[in-house]
């Protein structure tokens, strides 16, 4: 009986009963409270089951929503990371480019100004302080930022040479170097192939400590060749007269000091290529470099600029004290020494 009722209730709720059946069922409902209760129960269960299925739909939507959200967040994260990386790389590269192009474009102007400056100060100081002959091979630590170029360094050059015994490896803090060097005397020189050899003669000028306001510079360009392949050894004043006896110096277009800073070797230039020679005129570093740079920070100097087809020799900067520690130390040439050489030659 109950089963029948159940089926009837089902069919009634599904609206499957015929009109007569429906009427009969509703009449029965009126008089039978048990059936009413049963129907109510059925309805409830049906609604509840439906509700449960609807809840499933909502749960699925929620799941899909949060999965979508996570994917979106992840994607955004990836995109942002990629964009940041690209940005940083681009920034670094553009910065490098700036540094490469800047010195090129400005060097001419700077050189001009510098030249004038050098001339003026040289002229002024020349009068008051006579050029002494005593120590001619003084370090010329110039106070200038300068354009630096390609890789290849002193050490590698040393390696090539069998007797690369000098140790130029000491990188010194710039300020210390500056002081010690300046307290002796330093010529304030800027790179350039525009500086005439006669003018450079005047560049060996005593510097007082006070006059050196600028302690910042860490890099000196000793020799530099421009695009027209005009170049001079600019750190120097060659006293050709003092070396007259040494015939070798005539081989070169330009000859620098025998400088303690590079262990008593002298910078020489021929056909716009720089190299080093020892006191007897033997080649120490072959004349293959377009530019010679002394720097207190080798790596940064190298990183700074990359100019194509320029070969640059980087020499680690040494402080005054350390200059003494060349393994193969050749005493500085004094006037008398060079005379001696003359005599020896004779």
């Amino acid at each position: 009986m109950e089963t029948n009722w159940n089926q009837l209730i089902e069919r009634y709720l599904q609206n499957e009963l015929s009109e007569e059946g429906k009427t009969a069922f509703e009449q029965e409902l009126h008089i039978n409270p048990e059936l009413r209760e049963e129907l109510e129960m059925h309805e409830l269960i049906q609604s509840a089951a439906k509700r449960a299925s609807q809840r499933m739909v909502i749960k699925q939507t929620a799941k899909a929503h949060f999965r979508h959200l996570r994917i979106k967040q992840f994607t955004i994260g990836v995109v942002v990371t990629a964009a940041t990386t690209v940005g940083i790389v681009y920034w670094v590269q553009s910065k490098k480019q700036q540094e490469t192009t800047k010195p090129n474009s400005e060097s001419f102007l700077e050189n001009k100004q510098e030249e004038e400056e050098v001339q003026m100060s040289a002229a002024a100081e020349e009068e008051s302080i006579p050029l002494r002959d005593t120590i001619i091979n003084q370090p010329n630590q110039a106070g200038d930022k300068s354009s630096l170029i390609q890789s290849s360094d002193w050490q590698s050059a040393e390696g090539e040479r069998a007797h690369g015994t000098t140790s130029f490896n000491s990188l010194k803090s710039s300020s210390q170097t500056e002081k010690s060097v300046n307290s002796r005397r330093a010529a304030h020189i800027k790179s350039s192939g525009f500086v005439d050899i006669d003018k450079t003669l005047k560049n060996v000028i005593p510097f007082t400590v006070d006059s050196v306001v600028q302690l910042k510079p860490t890099v000196t360009v000793l020799g530099y060749t421009n695009e027209k392949l005009e170049g001079k050894v600019i750190e120097t004043s060659l006293k050709r007269s003092t070396l007259e006896g040494a015939a070798w110096n005539l081989q070169y277009d330009s000859v620098g000091h025998f400088n303690d800073l590079y262990c008593g070797y002298a910078l020489v230039m021929n056909d716009a290529k720089f190299g080093f020679v020892d006191r007897k005129g033997n080649i120490f570093i072959p004349l293959i470099y377009d530019k010679i740079v002394i720097t207190s920070n080798l790596q940064s100097s190298k990183d700074k600029t990359r100019r194509k087809d320029k070969k640059v020799l980087y020499i680690p900067k040494r402080s005054g004290g350390e200059v003494q520690y060349c393994e193969e130390y050749i005493p500085p040439v004094y006037e008398s020494d060079s005379n001696k050489i003359k005599k020896e030659k004779e």
């Binding site: 269960i45 049906q46 609604s47 089951a49 439906k50 509700r51 449960a52 299925s53 609807q54 499933m56």
Partner: peptide, 11 residues
């Protein structure tokens, strides 16, 4: 049972 009722009454 749950699935059955949901499929029948719900869907």
């Amino acid at each position: 049972c749950q699935e059955l009722l949901q499929l029948f009454y719900g869907l």
